[in-house]
Write a protein that binds this DNA or RNA. Sequence first.
DNA 1: CATTTGACTTGTG
DNA 2: CCACAAGCCAAAT
Length: 105
Amino acid sequence: MESNAKERIWQIVHQIPKGNVASYGQIANLAGLPGYARYVGHVLKNLPAGSKLPWHRVVNSKGAISFAVGTSEYLRQKARLEQEGIVFIDGRFSMARYRWNQDEA
DNA sequence: CATTTGACTTGTG
DNA sequence: CCACAAGCCAAAT
């Protein structure tokens, strides 16, 4: 049984520890798909309903949520991250501090 | 099949 | 730090 890029991305995202986050480019790189940052976004957008994938732990390289501020998706992601101990400051957080270090996984 | 779009990244000014 | 451009790839139109 071979793994599709989509499934690999799901696995990577699912492995992000609580209280940590990862960027799209990082996810793509870990999945063995360098340069597929946007593809990761497409996959997360097309997530099957009921998936337990912690997509909220995936953010952009700026250390901010990729959704527009005020949208329900933005608010939901922010709330979940805060619930995991991530502190938001002015709509973003310390990426260097919360960024997932795959060596720990 | 060509063009546009998008939950992106990195570099330059 | 902000604005703009180029690079990147897949899916939608």
